[in-house]
């Protein structure tokens, strides 16, 4: 099949970017989207041009590295997949695709499609952890966790931190990410000791990073490759308001 790509090219955060158009001919519909970019990059390198810079690592939808807007949708048109798990058979032959980086003040562009997502790391450092004594692993059955709580904690913990929620949000809000990280620990007994400072500190850091405010459009949930539910945002709001009252 044949595809036309309009790709955002930008040498660095300081230089202005622009769209460049590339033709991809005779490509297999079984390629993943990242493999398509690999093929285009091979062609660019053969012509002595700079390849398109994009983030990638596991290519099996679990690391959260790949990140791009494909035709105005974070990770492309398929629900519940990252760009690495998106296959060209989902596009029409001859289609023109616009590929842009995540756009948010908190995610400055490094180069082309790569943005700096360390804002997420700083939010995690602010409280997205449990403090435990290291040593031998504790006996698994000594802390019972009810099955529904374990399931819900796992649903939230499925977040791979790719930033699609921020990218898709009309306000570039990071609430779904923070909600997932706060909720998965809030649902488990191990997370209770630091529950209050965690939610207060993570929200404070989120605000400091310059993300927007959630106005409940729920675009994040539609874009999330792990289908994280916006019910966790309600959980975050509950936990935060409760923690504020008891401060």
């Amino acid at each position: 099949m044949r595809l036309t790509l309009r790709v955002w090219r930008q040498k660095s955060a300081k230089e202005p970017g622009r769209f460049e158009t590339y033709e991809a001919k005779d490509i297999s519909p079984d390629l993943s989207f990242l493999e398509l970019l690999d093929v285009v990059n091979d062609g660019l390198q053969q012509r002595g041009l700079d390849p398109i810079a994009f983030d990638h690592d596991c290519r099996e939808g679990i690391c959260g590295s790949c990140a791009m807007m494909i035709n105005g949708e974070a990770h492309g048109p398929q629900p519940a997949v990252a760009a690495c798990q998106l296959y060209l058979r989902h596009f029409k032959d001859g289609e023109t695709l616009t590929i842009e980086p995540w756009r948010a003040r908190a995610f400055p562009i490094i180069r082309d499609l790569i943005v700096d997502r360390s804002a997420f790391d700083r939010i995690i450092q602010a409280g997205g952890y449990v403090s435990v004594d290291t040593g031998s692993a504790p006996e698994a059955n000594s802390v019972p966790v009810p099955k529904p709580d374990a399931e819900e904690a796992m649903d939230a913990a499925a977040c791979i931190g790719c930033g699609a929620c921020v990218a898709a949000c009309p306000n570039a809000s990071a609430m779904l990410f923070v909600a997932a990280k706060v909720s998965h620990l809030a649902k488990l007994p191990q997370g209770q000791a630091e529950r209050k400072p965690r939610v207060l500190n993570m929200v404070e850091q989120m605000d400091r990073e310059g993300f927007g405010n959630c106005t409940n459009h729920y675009e994040c949930m539609a874009a999330c490759p792990k289908s994280i539910h916006v019910k966790f945002i309600a959980q975050l709001n509950r936990d935060y308001l409760k923690a504020c009252r008891r401060r």
């Binding site: 309009r6 769209f19 842009e100 756009r103 003040r105 306000n171 310059g210 927007g212 459009h217 729920y218």
Partner: peptide, 21 residues
């Protein structure tokens, strides 16, 4: 909140499709 939301995305997307809103 509206001012902060405008500031949070200084550069708009060329193409943006909404699914849920």
């Amino acid at each position: 909140l509206a001012i902060e939301n405008r500031r949070a995305r200084p550069q708009r997307y060329r193409v943006q499709r909404m699914a849920e809103t």
